[in-house]
């Protein structure tokens, strides 16, 4: 397939306080083998040559593991592909002449820093509220000393695969952080090491999630559909059960 020419409508915003607006760009010579972020690199090279300000976007690993990349592409966080992050989206999914609207994650709790980058430290504060286990490390324990059923281990691993990208918040019509918070509560609730602080963790993390100004969960399940790790809303159901236990019982 020949190289593509695309029209990009990109949200440009100078800093946190300035009002932003959409600006249209044309990018030529986009190869179908490029990733979406490489296509953005091509655009930025063009802008640098013209002496213009580059479009800021977050990225790091570019292989779907760090959770830095974001972008709402034609109305879908991480683009139309299921189970991939923006950095894993390839240009062969687009056609020559396409118009692509690119927006930042939109949530009061994720303020725009510049252009397409947002401040996701609200997630860090939710983790600080309880997304850990307190273990006084001694010698490494024998791996077979604590037995974990395989199904629990697998489900905990599914939850732990959350990369903290925030696409769940971006996709949620209410900008709820339930899927992220639930994944982090769930991964510990399923494992023996997470039991000691179990109730306190659920209570504190939900309280922090609410304090950050995320919306409520209306069970649209859009989060699961856009999550690059395909984390199931069954973890949200578990978060609720954990929270109810924390409401009823003492630690």
């Amino acid at each position: 397939m020949a190289d593509m020419t695309l029209t990009l409508k990109i949200w440009r915003q100078k800093d946190r306080k300035s009002p932003g607006k959409f600006v249209s760009y044309t990018v030529e010579n986009v190869s179908e083998h490029m990733s979406f972020l490489e296509m953005m690199d091509v655009l930025n090279e063009q802008l640098i040559k013209k002496g213009e300000d580059v479009v800021e976007f977050d990225n790091d690993c570019r292989e779907g593991i760090c959770g830095m990349c974001s972008l709402v592409i034609n109305g879908r966080p991480h683009g139309q592909e299921h189970g991939t992050a923006t950095c894993q989206l390839h240009m062969r999914k687009f056609n020559d002449g396409d118009i692509i609207v690119i927006e930042p994650w939109r949530a009061a709790a994720f303020p725009v820093l510049k252009d397409l980058t947002v401040d996701r430290t609200a997630f860090d504060r939710i983790i600080e509220a309880g997304g850990y286990t307190s273990i006084n490390a001694g010698g490494a324990a024998d791996s077979s000393a604590i037995l974990v059923p395989k199904s629990d281990a697998e489900e905990a691993m599914d939850a732990a695969s959350c990369i903290g990208c925030g696409a769940c918040v971006a996709a949620c019509p209410n900008a709820s952080a339930s899927l992220f918070t639930a994944a982090k509560i769930s991964q510990f609730a399923l494992l023996p090491q997470g039991q000691t602080e179990r109730k306190r963790r659920a209570a504190n993390m939900v309280a922090q999630m609410d304090a950050e100004g995320f919306g409520d969960c209306s069970n649209h399940a859009e989060c699961e559909a856009v999550c690059p790790k395909e984390i199931s809303i069954t973890h949200i159901a578990r978060m609720k059960r954990e929270y109810f236990k924390a409401m009823v019982f003492d630690e």
């Binding site: 939109r106 009061a108 209410n174 995320f214 069970n219 859009e222 699961e224 559909a225 809303i233």
Partner: peptide, 19 residues
């Protein structure tokens, strides 16, 4: 309150979504 600025383009993600 949680999303004061709305998206220009909104699409349904499909798949497991119940939206």
């Amino acid at each position: 309150k949680a999303r004061p600025v709305s998206y220009k383009k909104v699409a349904n993600a499909g798949g497991p979504s119940r939206k």
